[in-house]
Amino acid sequence: MKIAVVRFPGSNCDQDALKALTEDLGLEAEYVWHETASLSGYDGVFVPGGFSYGDYLRCGAMAAAATVMNEVRRFAAEGRPVLGACNGFQILCESGILPGALLQNVGRRFICDDVYLTPGTRRSPWTEQVDRTVTIPIAHGEGRYVIDADGLKALHDNDQVAFRYTNALGEPTPQSNPNGSVDNIAGVLNEKGNVLGLMPHPERCTKSILGGTDGLKVLAGYLALVGA
């Protein structure tokens, strides 16, 4: 299995992603520049975090208009694994692949911290290995997930809430919500479940030397989707 790690000007989690996928998950992975018109030969996509295009206009807005996103859209529609973390999540929302949008944190501060995450559903390739509340780092200034009431209902009805910010006991309390996201939502799935977007960084916790390996449980979604 070969994963395309998409690079935009301003991506800065691309190396973490490539190393996590290759060294810790044992997959093949390559960098792909945003002008790439074809992703044939790849089985999945990782859209990394960073500050693509300097967050011009809105976070992820310019990247969503990049050439490579036509292929990411095709992968999403064909049921192949697509994961976007942090700015990658913003890009997937801006491109319409995932519902909702990300706004500035309620506290107006950039937050760099470990958070507890609890799956909103286990019935997805990206969460089926996440058998408990996990600890994964966040690092963002614009991570407040918003969606209108109808959209929120649809997310719950279709089992598309992948992760919520919780306390260590798995309870989604106001205190455990770092950025003011609606319903403590940290990550969402597309309707098919093959696309995951989340603000936390699973690629930053795949080795014990990095402080934890909980990210591997999430990234295992690539194996679940392509192995199936």
């Binding site: 206009l57 809105r58 807005a61 929302c93 801006e94 949008a101 918003v146 969606i147 209108d148």
Partner: peptide, 8 residues
């Protein structure tokens, strides 16, 4: 398409 995000 680009200048505004109709979601927000």
């Amino acid at each position: 398409k680009l200048l505004a995000n109709p979601v927000i």
